[in-house]
């Protein structure tokens, strides 16, 4: 048992993650070819606009359900909404934010752009701490809008006229998942501006603009989009209940800052926070790079139902370091 644990702790999680992401990408983007359907309420960007997807992102259905008038939302169909949310939460609770680090196709594309940049010898960009804090609130604003805008279709707010259905799935209209993921199925139809109504025109224009920003941003800054992702905001609501955890023993932390330096998202608190045991922050994607970069025994660890899966060890740290230096 201890040799298995030692083997795991000495392993290179980054390499494992690379191949796992590839597998998850194929499964979620091409699974439809094999009639695979993991689920309809996945807590990850398995974009519904991709014809051959192997599961479906929850956000599209969720936004649609938010268009229900209050009378429906608080009656029979409301049960369907609750079941959808519970299924989403169920999926999420199993893997926590590892959905982002290991499965999200849009996250994987960002990681591939990072590899490309690194291969081109271009140094990455990072935000200063105040900019990081400011930007990370945007995802909560987007989450609020993706609930409120569809709600204003089925319900009148303050006696104002209701919105038309072209506002139906506002986040999907600007989501880079909609424009980019169908490309992997050979479908370029989302790369257009829709002139069939003014609303559609504005939203599809925004969508293409965001796609351009996504590509440039993710090339320069690791996991650029994840900081703004409303799915990540929705995750955070359920994160505390998850079975998979990232824990930190503040007593063992020497504040060397290794974990912060390797964090693709740029979460400073992973190094600074010595007080909390459950260290999963709202922007964390549970890539576990911080665990593999930590040189202190048992300081950072990923646990499942309290059982350690991957722990920081001095031995593992030096082995990985030596491999890199070879």
């Amino acid at each position: 048992m201890s040799s298995i644990r030692r083997f795991l702790n000495n392993s290179d999680i980054n390499r494992f993650r690379f191949y796992f992401q590839l597998f998850a990408f194929v499964l979620l983007v091409y699974g439809g070819y094999l009639a695979i359907n993991i689920g309809e309420q996945l807590p990850t960007f398995a974009c519904v606009f991709g014809e051959k997807r192997g599961g479906s992102c929850y956000l599209l259905g969720f936004q649609h359900q938010m268009t229900f008038p209050y009378a429906r939302l608080f009656s029979g169909p409301g049960i369907g909404v609750l079941i959808g949310l519970a299924t989403f939460a169920g999926f999420f609770i199993i893997f926590n934010k590892a959905w982002c680090g290991f499965a999200c196709p849009l996250g994987t594309i960002q990681d591939w752009l990072t590899i490309l940049r690194r291969k081109m010898g271009i140094y990455y960009s990072n935000y200063s701490e105040p900019v990081f804090k400011g930007l990370s609130t945007i995802k909560y604003i987007l989450l609020a809008l993706l609930i409120l805008i569809p709600m204003a279709i089925g319900n009148s707010f303050f006696g104002l006229p209701t919105l038309n259905h072209d506002f139906g799935v506002p986040f999907c209209m600007i989501c880079p998942g909609r424009t980019l993921l169908p490309l992997f199925n050979g479908d370029i139809s989302q790369l257009t501006i829709d002139f069939s109504s003014k609303t559609k025109m504005v939203f599809s224009g925004l969508g293409m603009g965001v796609t351009g920003m996504f590509l440039a941003g993710a090339f320069a800054k690791k996991r650029f989009f994840c900081l703004f992702c409303p799915m990540s905001a929705l995750h955070y609501i359920f994160s505390r209940a998850s079975l998979l955890r990232l824990t930190k023993d503040g007593e063992k932390c020497t504040r060397c800052g290794n974990c912060y330096r390797v964090c693709d998202v740029g979460i400073r608190a992973i190094a600074d926070d010595l007080d909390h045991k459950n260290i999963v922050k709202d922007d964390c994607m549970m890539c576990l790079k911080c665990v593999s970069a930590c040189p202190e025994d048992d300081c950072l660890k990923a646990t499942y139902l309290g059982i350690p899966l991957y722990e920081s060890t001095a031995e593992g740290f030096f082995r990985r370091r030596l491999k890199k230096d070879d």
Partner: peptide
């Protein structure tokens, strides 16, 4: 307004919208 519900028909789980 006329039908008192959004234009798209729906079951308990809701139908697609906007695509």
């Amino acid at each position: 307004k006329q039908s008192g519900r959004p234009g798209r028909p729906s079951g308990s789980g809701g139908e697609h919208a906007g695509h």
